[in-house]
């Protein structure tokens, strides 16, 4: 009975996977067929075989690895700094109410500015090197973590906070044992959004001013009129983004185990 059940879930998973693959694979086949029929301009829509070929050469030469690690390292740095600052300020806002008041208007004014609009300024200030790129990613990762942490700590269950009071717990215990765990699901949502923002920022920053990275690969492909290189960049971003998000959802299930994951 049990093995039958697991077989069924295995089958269900396989069906889901196949259904999910149908559209990307379908597009690739259509693309290739249209290219072969000469119906698309190949100097813009490089055909899938050429993209794969260019991908293989880049891997063989080691340049692909160089580009992808450059982007990932930038993201890792900016994401870590940005989310740490966002988390710290966000959790302080519950301890000291005036911090919330102090930043209320500043947040309202600064938040609507897309982080990438700071890129020229950051280049002017921090130079064309790594610092300005990490800085823009930091800004991109900072906002969602800050706002979701603030939201999370504010929406801690009143009844649990009263429980803390009834049991004579001090502020520290209430923060670490009640408020922060309550805010965890929300903080995690913030981290997930932050990763998305970080990707946006890194690609844009690399397209504007860089000599390495996936964003650079895209603008480089355009400059050389080699669309297959450009597409390697775009597709890689999609693939890595997909992998990272899958990983984060897995992590979420482990970290926020007491809540059923949302679809």
């Amino acid at each position: 009975m049990k093995s039958e059940d697991s077989l069924k879930t295995w089958q269900a998973k396989a069906v889901k996977l196949l259904a999910g693959l149908a559209i990307p694979v379908g597009i690739l086949i259509l693309w290739q067929v249209l290219s072969d029929m000469g119906r698309v301009n190949e100097s813009i829509f490089a055909n899938p075989f050429r993209i794969v070929e260019s991908f293989e050469t880049m891997i063989a030469k080691g340049t692909y690895f160089k580009h992808i690690t450059a982007s990932l390292i930038r993201i890792l740095k900016g994401f870590t700094i940005g989310s740490l600052i966002g988390f710290s300020l966000g959790s302080l806002s519950i301890l000291f109410k005036w911090i919330g008041y102090l930043f209320d208007i500043a947040i309202g004014l600064l938040r609507p500015i897309p982080p990438i609009s700071f890129i020229p300024f950051l280049i002017l200030w921090l130079g064309i090197g790594e610092k300005s790129k990490v800085a823009v990613i930091t800004i991109g990762a900072f906002w969602p973590v800050l706002l979701n942490t603030m939201h999370g700590v504010k929406s801690a269950d009143e009844k649990l906070l009263e429980l803390g009071r009834a049991f004579g717990k001090d502020k520290r215990t209430i923060l670490f044992k009640l408020i922060l765990p309550s805010a965890f699901p929300s903080i995690f949502t913030g981290l997930r959004l932050a990763i998305g923002n970080a990707w946006n920022c890194v690609v844009t920053a690399e397209m504007i001013a860089s000599s390495v990275g996936l964003g650079f690969l895209i603008s480089y492909g355009r400059e050389l009129s080699r669309p297959e290189v450009l597409f390697v960049g775009i597709i890689s971003i999609g693939l890595v983004g997909f992998l990272v998000d899958t990983l984060v959802i897995r992590l979420q299930r482990r970290v926020v185990y007491w809540i059923e994951p949302q679809k």
Binding site: K159, L160, L163, R165, A166, F167, G168, L178, P181, W258
Partner: peptide, 19 residues
């Protein structure tokens, strides 16, 4: 103020920490 050593309280909801 609350004194958990002398007075215990039980609410209608169990108010357990879900995590």
């Amino acid at each position: 103020r609350p004194s958990e050593k002398d007075v215990g309280i039980i609410f209608q909801e169990s108010r357990l920490l879900p995590w």
